[in-house]
């Protein structure tokens, strides 16, 4: 199998691909989260951030890869160009979902936290932040999958992880290499997507056990504790 015999050339590309896709996702998150929290109540700053993020998202990835050296003065073949460009995309995508999901936190929850003595910054970290995790995880997954795919575009400017298998396979007229590149990129996208979903699941224990089966389990446990409740016994029997 081509992949096995050529693993020594593929593995450094795979490692580079993982770095080039994961770092921007993390950087984007690290920018979007505090920025969104800071801008939530600031109307002008917020409107500006939303407009800027949709503008950034409109710039094609290849154009951004080649524009960054001219704007920041980096070298043309510097992997930093790809990391910076993808960080901009990830941050643009996440900042909007941070803002929207913060809006969804019920005002009553915030007031309750203040009433029991949370300082504003503690309330933000311990009440608002955990509640935005599900929405934020969803947009981080979209950003991560998009990053995995966009890194390969970098191959045409010499920095593209597994994307090099596309340019190389094209130049040597060798479809098998391209096919393996696509397969590895799809697998990488699935792995990253699942990893983020699992991390988010682990971070939100209060969201587990929401289904009908979980509800039946709780009812049965309750009926054992309160054997004298006829209504409860009946409800459990019906289930």
């Amino acid at each position: 199998m081509w992949l096995v015999t050529n693993w020594s050339t593929v593995s450094p590309m795979l490692v580079q691909h993982i770095w080039l896709a994961v770092l921007p996702t993390l950087f984007g998150l690290a920018i979007a989260l505090p920025l969104g929290m800071f801008l939530r109540t600031r109307r002008r700053g917020r409107a500006f951030a939303v407009a800027a993020s949709s503008l950034i998202y409109t710039i094609p990835s290849l154009a951004l890869f080649v524009l960054i050296p001219s704007v920041l003065g980096t070298q043309f073949l510097d992997p930093a160009n790809v990391v910076i460009a993808l960080t901009l995309y990830s941050a643009s995508l996440c900042v909007r979902s941070v803002l929207e999901s913060l809006d969804e936190v019920p005002e009553g929850t915030r007031e309750a936290a203040t009433a029991i003595g949370f300082a504003p910054w503690r309330r933000t970290a311990l009440v608002d932040l955990p509640l935005v995790i599900p929405v934020l995880a969803a947009s981080t997954r979209v950003a991560a999958v998009a990053n995995v795919s966009m890194v390969s575009v970098g191959a045409v400017i010499g920095v593209g992880g597994l994307g090099k298998m596309f340019t190389d396979g094209y130049q040597r007229n060798f479809p098998e290499e391209i096919l393996w590149g696509i397969v590895l990129i799809l697998l990488l996208a699935v792995c990253l997507d699942r990893t983020i979903a699992l991390v988010a699941h682990g971070l939100t224990p209060w969201n587990h056990e929401r289904g009908l089966a979980a509800s039946a389990k709780r009812l049965r446990a309750l009926s054992r504790e309160l054997p004298e409740s006829a209504r409860l016994q009946e409800a459990v029997r019906v289930r």
């Binding site: 795919s149 060798f174 391209i178 990129i185 799809l186 699935v190």
Partner: peptide, 16 residues
Amino acid sequence: LRAIPSLGLMTLLILF
């Protein structure tokens, strides 16, 4: 379909 890298698909198809 969203996860398929377009550059890979283009280079692959053009060989066939």
